[in-house]
Amino acid sequence: MKLFSSRFKQVVAILRKDFLIGMRQRATFAAMMMFALTATASLSLSTGGAFVEPKFLAALLWVVIFFAASAGIAGTFDDEATAGTLPTLKLYADAQAILFGKMIYVFLSLVALTIFILPIFLILFDEPTENFLLLFTTIFLGLIGLAAAGTLTAALTTSATVKGGLFPILLFPVTLPIFLPAISLTEISFTSAAFDMSSLIMIAAFDSILITASSILYDYL
């Protein structure tokens, strides 16, 4: 219990520290937002206001989220490794506290990313969403898994000497069990068709497996 509470305090301290640095050094965050905006704009411009099938639109939304997230979270550990602070952090904080501190930070930045890009996306493609609750739940659950797998993947790629494009290559196959059901649920939320609860449950189940696995595997790093 004591161990748990001291880890919890470390998680909070790391989270607060990352926020402080994130606010002062806005480049990473700005790049992620601009990436999402650029991708959305280029897709919308190229379809020129023509009607886009909800199925296709749902896939586009997740593609935008995936690649913008990749741009934003690939450097989760790299920034500290480059600055030379990662060894210090690893010395003073528990490994699990570092992982979860970073994971929560990544999750919250992905939430911020979605809050920014989702309205723009829906307005530019003129998509009347029928079931907002389903859309939000799907995105919320999807982002949890993306943050869990993304944080571990970012830790793996930190030691790579060749980084260009490595992060999304590694992240994509691992997060497919999230994307496939999330895309069909998003499509349903656009059209208000009946949806299958088991898909939502499956994303949640995969989320918890990713969190558990990240936690176990990170100790071997």
Binding site: A13, K17, T85
Partner: peptide, 23 residues
């Protein structure tokens, strides 16, 4: 030398952060 501290935090923020990690 390789154990760096945070450049974009102030001296006090650095001190407080590492002390906090040790409770």
């Amino acid at each position: 030398p390789e154990m760096k501290i945070y450049d974009n935090l102030t001296a006090i923020e650095n001190l407080k952060f590492f002390a906090e990690l040790r409770g």
